[in-house]
């Protein structure tokens, strides 16, 4: 797992995506721009975060779930 460790801690890139989504829900392209990560990494990461129940997807848009918001709030700024 590249974004979330087995004990639920986000990796550096996972935390960047969570922070980007905390600031604003959006498409993979938008998350890629605001997180400063390559699009392929974001697509893969969002898939992983969605499977972990931290992010939900509606069409092309991604947003944090309640569990994801809680985790994003606990991240250092």
């Amino acid at each position: 797992m590249a974004c979330i460790s087995p004990d639920g801690k986000p990796s550096v890139s996972g935390a960047k995506m969570l922070r980007a989504l905390k600031a604003k829900a959006g498409s993979a392209e938008e998350v890629s721009q605001s997180a400063g990560l390559p699009l392929f990494r974001v697509r893969s990461g969002l898939r992983e975060l969605t499977q972990a129940g931290l992010v939900s997807q509606k069409g092309e848009q991604y947003q944090l779930s309640a569990k994801g918001s809680e985790l994003a709030d606990s991240l250092p700024a």
Partner: peptide
């Protein structure tokens, strides 16, 4: 080395 990836993750590039 950068996590699981699919070919489709590269669409548009």
């Amino acid at each position: 080395t950068q996590g699981p990836l699919k070919l489709e993750d590269y669409k548009g590039s």
